Amino acid sequence: MTQLRILIFTTVMLPWILSTAAKDEYVEARRAKRDTENGIDFPPTNRAVAPKADELPTCLLCVCLSGSVYCEEVSPSMTAVPSLPKETAYLYARFNKIRKIKNRDFSDMATLKRIDLTGNLITEIEDGAFSKLPNLEELSLAENLLTRLPILPTKLVTFNANFNKLKTQGVKANAFKKLTRLAYLYLGNNELTAVPQLPESLHIVHLQDNKISTITDETFCKGNTSHYIRTNMDEVRLDGNPLKMSQHPDSFICLQSLPIGLYN
């Protein structure tokens, strides 16, 4: 009976006690920071120092649940990608203050299938940051401050970089061409002056509200043949660009429908 009680305490009560103590310490630190900001001071011996985001265990700072890590609008502010549990498949780190993505941030994370970094302050991504993610299918970098794109994983199905500051010279010519599974590409509200090379696999491509002023008969189609039909392409957006559609009557001849949106 005594051994049974010890076993129950070790497997059930002890982890709960340790977890509760850690949370209490974190809550107390946040309370102390709030009181200090409100002008309530305490003697140095009684005042807790609020921890920084990178000083806290990831699964205390974020919510870890069955292979998913949720780090959204974290307080204290998260300025870098946290260390992730090895089994992480889905990372949601939206609306924080992450500024740079380094090569080591996702090293040895072969299980990752989706990364969502929407709404951060990212200005730079090292070229190898995503190159060692063989199973990554969805990547969102929307609403950041990027002017260039890194090398992208070849198995991507969805890529979203809407609302950045991407420039044509910051997007390599074959950045998307080799992504043979890419079906959804969102590059709206950037500073692109040309349409990048597009893979045959695309179903949807959004390029609205850029600075694209011209296209050719080979941007979407194959200018040397009128028999080619782009069967996968369901939706194209080019509205909000200084593009005169009337000047390019044969540029969309291979599509099953014309680009959507309002045009001059």
Rank of each mutant, 00 (worst) to 15 (best):
P15N: 11
T158W: 07
S246R: 14
Q256F: 11
N232W: 03
S140K: 07
L141F: 07
S19V: 09
L139H: 06
T214F: 05
D250R: 15
Q169Y: 09
T225G: 02
E218D: 14
D127C: 05
V74L: 09
F9W: 12
R104T: 14
L56E: 03
E200A: 15
I6Y: 08
Y184D: 14
N103K: 00
V171L: 07
N189M: 09
S83A: 13
L243C: 04
N174C: 03
E72L: 10
A50F: 01
I229M: 13
K102S: 05
G261V: 08
L139K: 07
R30M: 12
L65Y: 05
N241W: 09
R230D: 12
L238A: 10
R237F: 15
L146K: 01
T180I: 06
L187N: 00
K113W: 03
T45W: 07
K155Y: 13
I204W: 07
P82H: 05
L139E: 06
V205F: 01
A129D: 07
L84G: 02
R5M: 15
L14D: 04
N174V: 05
H248R: 09
E138F: 11
A29L: 01
L136I: 10
A93T: 00
C254D: 12
F95V: 02
F220D: 11
K222L: 15
E126M: 03
A89V: 06
Y228L: 03
V27H: 14
M1N: 11
P150A: 03
D24Y: 11
G223R: 08
L117C: 00
I260F: 14
N96A: 06
L61C: 04
A32T: 00
N241V: 07
T147F: 10
N120M: 02
D116A: 07
V74Y: 03
P259V: 13
T216R: 08
L117S: 01
G67D: 08
N210R: 00
L179D: 00
F106W: 03
T45G: 01
P76Q: 05
K244G: 06
L18T: 13
Y263E: 08
P57M: 03
T58A: 04
S19F: 14
K100L: 09
I151L: 10
C254E: 11
N264S: 13
N190V: 01
D116M: 07
G119T: 00
K97Y: 07
K178N: 13
T158A: 14
K52H: 12
L14W: 03
K155C: 05
M13Y: 10
D250Q: 14
I151P: 00
L61V: 04
K102R: 15
N189G: 04
L121I: 03
I229F: 13
R237E: 15
P44Y: 08
L14E: 00
N264K: 12
L152S: 03
R94Q: 14
C71E: 06
V171R: 03
E72A: 05
L4R: 15
A48V: 11
L149R: 04
N120H: 02
P43D: 11
W16L: 13
I260K: 09
I215N: 06
V27P: 01
I204A: 04
C64L: 01
R99C: 04
D234V: 06
R5E: 15
D234L: 13
K113R: 12
L198G: 04
S68K: 11
F95A: 07
F176G: 02
L192N: 07
Y228N: 04
T20H: 06
V74G: 01
V63R: 10
E138W: 09
I115A: 02
A173P: 02
S19I: 10
